[in-house]
Amino acid sequence: MTSTISRSKRWLRTVCAAAVWLALWQILSMIIGLELLLPSPISTVTRLFELACTGTFWGAVGRSLLNILAGWLLGALAGGLLALATNASAAVRALFRPIMSVVKATPVASFVMLAFVWIRSARLPTFCTFLMVLPVVWTNIHEGLGSADAGLLEMARAFRLRRSAVWRTIRLPALLPHIFGAVRVSLGFAWKAGVAAEVIAHAGRSIGGSLYDAKLYLNTADVFAWTAVTIILSVLLEHVCAALMDRASRRLGAAADVKEATAA
């Protein structure tokens, strides 16, 4: 009961905060009085609904989702496998650590410019998303693999536990919070990097491509509407992902508090 009340209070607070910012946006737009410079929230939402009634809109959303999720999946897979390799071998770790630092520090725009030479522009967003996701996932999973409780691992050695039992009971519960962290952070990165790459690469009928076109034709309401689409999709993806991870952690008995409980 108490948690329901506090949840509805929190929800009410969020709605109030959003209403305040929307009102400020509306007032500012009215003061400027030029839709070209700052479209009002009402015209943005109207434009968003108009766009949503067209097939082109859904085609662009689908294309971007495909571009970005493909890059994210490839990056997550490669990052995970690479983390296993760097955790197993100091030589592999020494070889890849500087590369990962370089990739992490390189801006999306640089990747797009470089990749233009090698890859078709339609593949660029996927490639850039892959490069953005790879070091994030690698860092998290590499850390997670090293975070298993040393005392529990020694206990497992003493009792000669099977490798599968060690993974199930010690390594995986310690790794899961890092995997979840990697998924959450990398999805956000993937979305931003993917759309940015689409804009820079003028990737045709996609969210980024539509943003570019809207900017080119000084259609500011469209720029705002497409930006809103990006934000909505990002939040939706994050929520879906959080729900899936929550379910997985319950099923796998994830123990983010391995160390605390062991100490107890």
Partner: peptide, 21 residues
């Protein structure tokens, strides 16, 4: 081996901790 710390698997029950070995 009984270690200086109990070193029990936190997500397993008392019985499961013993059964594990």
């Amino acid at each position: 081996f009984v270690f200086q710390e109990s070193r029990l698997i936190p997500q397993l029950t008392a019985l499961e901790n013993v059964l594990l070995v």
